[in-house]
Nucleic acid binder design. Structure first.
Length: 175
DNA sequence: TAGGCCATCTGGTCCT
DNA sequence: AGGACCAGATGGCCTA
């Protein structure tokens, strides 16, 4: 994956160079053994050639391509930030198979159920297991309890723990 | 080899 | 106007 990222970054650098210098690719580049990246690079160069032809080598075509590459770079950075956030989330979710990286969907699902479990636990502790309005802490636990119930009116608190435990179990099994 | 997951590119839309 | 965000497309890598 690192190799891929490196290769793509290199490709981008090459693209930028091409844009700035308007180099034409050599015939060797169309070799049968072109890798994916090289193929894409070729396509990109072709695209640059076409756009430069059709737009009569005006700066418009170049500007468009430069802006495209710049937004690609921004998008890449944005996705990297998103991935960093996912990684940070992975690190705070307790799960069993630490050697196996959680996928994004697993991370989100596990996080959701973990939060639900913690919320239920906090509620139980803060209200002393008394329902709000019946001697429980109406100011703190009661409010929180009502808010929680509004959001989760159809789900049982114990279910979250069960869901979370099930997921942990599944990860342990490697499924 | 199929399916899951991922990174990247891209064009459209929204927001500031 | 330009950047952020989003979703679809594409192709690579890995695993069962």
């Amino acid at each position: 994956m690192k190799t891929k990222a490196r290769a793509l970054r290199r490709r981008k650098e090459v693209d930028i160079e091409d844009l700035h210098e308007q180099k034409t690719s050599s015939e060797e580049d169309t070799d049968k053994c072109l890798s994916y990246k090289e193929k894409r690079k070729g396509e990109n160069e072709e695209q640059i050639k076409i756009s430069s032809k059709t737009k009569s080598e005006t700066t418009n075509g170049k500007e468009h391509s430069v802006r495209r590459l710049e937004s690609n770079e921004r998008e890449r950075q944005r996705m990297h930030k998103l991935n960093n956030a996912f990684q940070a989330l992975r690190e705070v979710i307790p799960h069993v198979r630490a050697e196996k990286k959680l996928s994004k969907i697993e991370t989100l699902t596990l996080a959701k159920n973990y939060i639900n479990t913690l919320t239920a636990t906090i509620l139980n502790m803060s209200s002393g297991c008394l329902p709000p309005g019946e001697g429980g802490n109406v100011v703190n636990g009661g409010k929180l309890y009502r808010h929680y119930q509004q959001q989760r009116d159809e789900e049982d608190n114990d279910k979250h723990l069960e869901q979370y435990s099930t997921q942990i179990h599944n990860f342990r099994q490697g499924s």
